[in-house]
């Protein structure tokens, strides 16, 4: 019998409004995040993602609802966050004039009172993020990739169980990006719970298990990412009739008047799909296969908000 992963963070009907705001910035959000998973929080600018994360990390106090870290029920919310939650901001949240080691030493000194553990925590963070080659280098002299790793290493030096990451791969080369994604996947395997925000949706698809779409402060979609699924988008010259639509046996979604989406979870059905498409060859304008359902869903949900 498969072991059920414990819930690390639970939000119940969480709401928040800034002073003077006409509407709620976070509106009755309920979520459960499990151990060893990565959950992406996606949405357009101004959707309420940052406010939601600020609430989850105790930076803001909710107007209504509850935030719980059920794994640490013996601790208050503030204590649980202080001990077991770490942030990886998008900017390099460390001291550029200090060395890698000194940066880690400073943050470890704040997070851990037991001095005997300091060296161990620093070394484990250095090892996890593969920073051995630059330990004594000043942070300002590091490449973008190493700076990103140091940003994560500082979070890991706190020995957290839950890590919030804001675009941790922005502005770095593909190889450094792969190294960071690989590091984050390792953290998941170690049982760390990751909460991830990024506009790089292919990265979300690669790393995350669940995705939460936020719009106007509300959760508009919350679903697991199934990497075995294949999505086909096609557009037609005219709107398809009911008879034409009946040709498709797969799950078909009408995105707009002449834009349709098919979700295929069994590749054996591809034959019948191509057969149906060939019957409509005069009507078909474009066909596009994608294995990144997140991007499609994102576009479907938020296309009207694009600038």
């Amino acid at each position: 019998m498969a072991k059920i992963a414990p819930i690390m963070l639970e939000l119940q009907q969480l709401s928040f409004a800034y002073k003077g705001a006409e509407r709620l910035t976070v509106d009755a959000v309920s979520l459960q995040l499990k151990q060893g998973t990565c959950t992406a929080i996606l949405g357009p600018n101004g959707a309420g993602k940052s406010t939601l994360i600020s609430l989850m990390t105790g930076l803001l106090a909710p107007a209504a609802g509850r935030i719980e870290y059920p794994h640490y029920q013996q601790l208050s919310l503030k204590q649980a966050i202080a001990k077991k939650v770490a942030l990886v901001p998008q900017d390099f949240a460390f001291y550029e004039e200090l060395t890698v080691y000194d940066n880690l030493a400073f943050f470890v000194a704040i997070s851990e009172k037991n001095r005997r553990l300091h060296a161990q925590y620093i070394e484990s963070a250095i090892a996890a993020c593969n920073l051995q080659a630059v330990t004594n280098k000043r942070a300002s002299t590091l490449s973008g990739g190493y700076k990103r790793r140091l940003n994560i290493a500082i979070a890991l030096s706190k020995q957290p169980d839950i890590i919030f990451l804001d675009e941790p791969t922005v502005g770095i080369d593909p190889l450094s990006r792969d190294a960071i994604i690989s590091l984050l996947q390792d953290l998941k395997k170690q049982g760390k719970t990751l909460i991830y925000t990024s506009h790089l949706l292919y990265e979300v698809a690669q790393l995350c298990d669940d995705v939460v779409f936020i719009k106007d402060g509300k959760v508009v979609a919350n679903q697991a990412i199934n990497s075995a699924q294949l999505t086909l988008n096609f557009t037609t010259r005219n709107r398809l009739s009911q008879v034409q639509l009946a040709l498709f046996t797969e799950q078909l979604t009408v995105i707009s008047e002449a834009h349709y989406q098919l979700t295929i979870s069994d590749t054996k059905l591809l034959g019948s799909l191509f057969s149906a498409l060939s019957q409509l060859s005069d009507e078909i304008k474009s066909v596009n296969f994608s294995d990144n359902q997140i991007e499609l869903l994102y576009r479907a949900l938020f296309s009207e908000q694009a600038c």
């Binding site: 990390t57 930076l59 001990k83 942030l87 900017d91 949240a93 460390f94």
Partner: peptide, 17 residues
């Protein structure tokens, strides 16, 4: 200003201090 702008203070707000 550095600490505020680059997120260090936000990070420190989640530390036990």
């Amino acid at each position: 200003i550095n600490e505020r702008n680059n997120g260090t203070l936000v990070r420190l707000k989640t530390y036990p201090i």
